[in-house]
Deep mutational scan, measured.
Amino acid sequence: GSLMYASIFGNVSAIIQRLYSGTARYHTQMLRVREFIRFHQIPNPLRQRLEEYFQHAWSYTNGIDMNAVLKGFPECLQADICLHLNRSLLQHCKPFRGATKGCLRALAMKFKTTHAPPGDTLVHAGDLLTALYFISRGSIEILRGDVVVAILGKNDIFGEPLNLYARPGKSNGDVRALTYCDLHKIHRDDLLEVLDMYPEFSDHFWSSLEITFNLRDTNMIPGSPGSTELEGGFSRQRKRKLSFRRRTDKDTEQPGEVSALGPGRAGAGPSSRGRPGGPWGESPSSGPSSPESSEDEGPGRSSSPLRLVPFSSPRPPGEPPGGEPLMEDCEKSSDTCNPLSGAFSGVSNIFSFWGDSRGRQYQELPRCPAPTPSLLNIPLSSPGRRPRGDVESRLDALQRQLNRLETRLSADMATVLQLLQRQMTLVPPAYSAVTTPGPGPTSTSPLLPVSPLPTLTLDSLSQVSQFMACEELPPGAPELPQEGPTRRLSLPGQLGALTSQPLHRHGSDPGS
């Protein structure tokens, strides 16, 4: 009898404990919600809404976190579960008819179910419309201010047509639940991603989709105040780019002037030289400038040598048109050559190039014969006009050509200096018209024969001689050997007369 009593008592207590286990969990969670309300000092109306929603959600799901349970299964099984949970929507909604099984599984994985109690606001006026909503159960109302403009029910759709707008718009009203509602919502990016994977279904979906109420604000059109608020930074940046392009296009129409201050000032006329910023005076940081632009901040801005204009002085008759350009485009679109090309026009420029290279940067340069637009006047290309890779490749080509020119210049200078040193070592320090008596009659020769300089066969020296023939050397430049009979510069000019005159010897006659 005691054994029977113990078994009955144990079973009854276990049954009672299981009955009250759900209630215990409910009270535990309710205590957490109330502690949250007390800690954050939530006001009474919002506090009442929180408690009511918790009670309804507990009775609806029995305190089970559906998302946590669903995430515990593998992905393939999750797709089947989501397809079952959203079967009513996918079967009865017209846009989803005719979709393949794979497309429906992908869509079912992207849908999220939302449960809303009465009085809950789903979308506020001015919120971004980031999702498309399908009503599965219940009814909602749409308000503009305090005026109800629409009441939607089961199988209705609200949001915005995503295929017509590249960016999400703003809501033009509040969406509030009238009863307990079940909503299926899919985010904008998720829907577009699935439709991109199934393009054959995309056309059918957009053609058959009928949005019951379009929440997009109709005033959000390009150029409206609301649109400016939504895309303020983007609009200002776009206007700045367009104004920069218009100014650079105007600059290219004036090829007669070359400016070292950047493309923003290349198009300024002579009357605007004294102004601080020219056409860019209202925004000094709008356009890029070269490193020399920092010198323009000092006094005497109108007389600054940074602004270059072609000189009108005539060229000498024998002067060549100019050196070879550094870039391939210089032959086609440049009416002034790079300062480095002028360094190779003569030997005198070679000796004085490194010492006063900055001073020569603004000297007169030889002109190319074609009066085409200036290379320095070409505006900086924006990322939309020329690819970045093209600019980098041009810079690399320019750097390689500069290296080759520097190597060639160093070799030419070394060769010229070597020839000058050899000339100085071969010439005796001094010569006299009267020579010392020699031991015999073989001493009648006034000077030792001097062998002429070897013929220069280097390509670089031939180019130097060509430049010497075309360029007029300055007075202080050293002379180079030329073709024809060679003669030492330090010898007297009348050596031929010395050989014809008898030598005057000093000596005593033994017979006297």
Rank of each mutant, 00 (worst) to 15 (best):
T130E: 11
L132S: 02
I135S: 01
S136A: 08
R137M: 04
G138K: 01
I140V: 10
I142W: 01
R144D: 10
G145A: 10
G145S: 13
G145I: 01
D146E: 10
V147P: 02
A150P: 01
A150E: 01
L152I: 05
G153Y: 11
K154M: 08
I157R: 02
F158M: 05
F158L: 06
P161L: 02
L164R: 14
L164S: 09
A166F: 09
R167H: 15
P168F: 01
G169L: 02
G173N: 11
R176I: 08
R176N: 03
C181E: 01
D182F: 08
I186Y: 02
I186S: 01
H187G: 09
R188Y: 11
D190P: 01
E193T: 07
E193N: 04
P199D: 06
S202D: 07
W206T: 10
W206Y: 12
S207M: 15
E210Y: 03
E210I: 04
I211K: 03
N214H: 01
I221H: 09
P222Q: 08
P222R: 12
G223I: 13
S224I: 09
P225Q: 14
S227A: 12
L230V: 11
F234D: 13
R236C: 10
Q237K: 11
R238D: 11
K239G: 11
K239A: 13
R240L: 09
K241N: 07
T248R: 09
T252P: 10
T252H: 13
Q254A: 08
G256M: 09
G256N: 10
G256C: 12
E257C: 13
V258G: 11
P263G: 15
A266S: 10
G267I: 13
A268Q: 10
S271F: 14
S286T: 04
G287A: 13
P291R: 14
E295I: 10
E297F: 15
P299T: 12
S303E: 10
R307C: 07
L308W: 13
S313G: 04
S313L: 09
P314S: 08
P316F: 11
P317S: 11
E319M: 14
G323K: 09
E324K: 15
E324R: 07
P325C: 12
P325G: 05
P325K: 03
L326T: 12
S333P: 06
S333I: 13
D335W: 03
N338W: 08
S348K: 13
N349I: 02
S352H: 09
S357Y: 15
S357T: 11
S357G: 08
R358F: 10
R358Y: 04
G359P: 15
G359I: 13
Q363A: 14
E364P: 09
R367T: 09
R367S: 10
I378A: 08
I378N: 14
P383N: 05
R386M: 12
R386Q: 13
P387W: 13
E392A: 06
R394H: 08
A397N: 10
T407K: 14
L409M: 09
A411M: 09
A411G: 07
D412M: 03
M413P: 03
L419S: 06
L420S: 04
L420K: 05
Q423Y: 13
M424I: 09
L426W: 15
P429R: 13
Y431T: 13
Y431M: 14
Y431F: 13
G440K: 06
P441K: 04
T444C: 10
P446W: 04
P449Q: 06
S451M: 13
L458V: 12
S460F: 04
Q463G: 11
V464I: 10
F467Y: 13
C470K: 08
C470H: 09
L473I: 13
P475Y: 04
G476W: 15
E479R: 10
E479T: 12
L480K: 11
P481R: 08
L491W: 08
P492R: 10
G493C: 09
Q494E: 05
Q494A: 10
A497H: 09
L498E: 10
T499Q: 14
Q501W: 15
P502L: 11
G511A: 12
